[in-house]
């Protein structure tokens, strides 16, 4: 299977660094791995995982992403914000997306995806026509990430923010993926909902069943850093050429075509 003809776009990956400074060597290593596996473009962000990152902290995190984008054209940046700082988050989205070419918003587990605190940033993302990628999972140890969004939160979120393209992160990110898929069977067919395939979990059937649960137009290829896992589990899903084309890159470019700002 020569999947490289579909020019895969990794919808969910990261760069690292400290105090606003990119770890260039690590970023190069990530791109080299993408090159080896025939991944054409890589969406990146630098989310902060603690309870409530300050505006100064998320601005510095985004500088890391912006540095990577300016050095390597194959990186597509996503703007990380903490929606608890509403005004500062909107300013950061304007800076990163409108002025400096980022392509989406990345949220971490500071809030559930259906928290009313998200209204301003979700509405602004809809105005800009960019997707919001939310860290997600159904952990069997929920105390480790008490505000981690699972599929039931996304079901509510698409009703609260019907204009916004919402992406549930890494179905293979660890957690009960079957639970998530059973809940997503009830997703509103008209909702602007997507899910990415990233994460290290390569359980037999995980991608095939994701496609069956939500439909091939909503599934986005991703690695979240697990490069061989990312490619391999999509190839093993028994999908048609047309489905592979959509998942590896077609659905991504459809989302990007919604962008309303230059």
């Amino acid at each position: 299977m020569n999947y490289m003809i579909y020019k895969p776009v990794d919808f969910h990956n990261h760069v690292s660094g400290k105090k606003g400074k990119l770890d260039k060597k690590e970023a190069e290593s990530r791109l080299e791995a993408a090159e080896i596996l025939g991944i054409d473009k890589v969406c990146i962000s630098r989310p902060l995982t603690w309870d409530s990152p300050s505006p100064e902290e998320f601005r510095a995190a985004n500088e890391i992403t912006l540095s990577a984008m300016s050095l390597f054209k194959r990186f597509i940046g996503f703007c990380y914000i903490n929606p608890g700082y509403s005004r500062e988050s909107l300013d950061e989205m304007e800076k990163c997306i409108v002025k400096r070419g980022m392509s989406g918003v990345k949220l971490y587990h500071q809030y559930f995806i259906c928290d009313p605190a998200l209204y301003p940033v979700m509405e602004y993302a809809a105005d800009l026509g960019v997707p919001v990628l939310m860290h997600a999972g159904k952990l069997t140890d929920p105390l480790s990430q008490p505000r981690l969004s699972n599929a039931s939160h996304f079901i509510r979120a698409v009703k609260m923010f019907p204009r916004t393209m919402i992406v549930q992160a890494h179905i293979g990110g660890g957690g009960d993926w079957e639970w998530n898929l059973r809940v997503l069977e009830d997703m509103d067919p008209s909702a602007k909902f997507f899910i990415d395939t990233g994460g290290s979990v390569v359980d037999n059937g995980i991608v095939r069943r994701t496609v069956r649960a939500v439909g091939e137009d909503r599934v986005l290829f991703a690695t979240d850093g697990g490069m061989e896992e990312g490619i391999g589990k999509v190839l093993d899903a028994g999908l048609s050429e047309n489905q592979l084309k959509k998942i590896f890159s077609g659905n991504f470019y459809n989302i990007m075509s919604e962008r309303r700002v230059k």
């Binding site: 080896i36 596996l37 390569v202 359980d203 037999n204 995980i206 061989e228 896992e229 490619i231 391999g232 589990k233 190839l235 093993d236």
Partner: peptide
């Protein structure tokens, strides 16, 4: 590979690349 719990191609790609 970890089959049949896991898909096989990820393991093949690891060695190949």
């Amino acid at each position: 590979s970890g089959a049949p719990f896991k898909e096989i191609t990820p393991a093949l790609l690891r060695v190949k690349h």
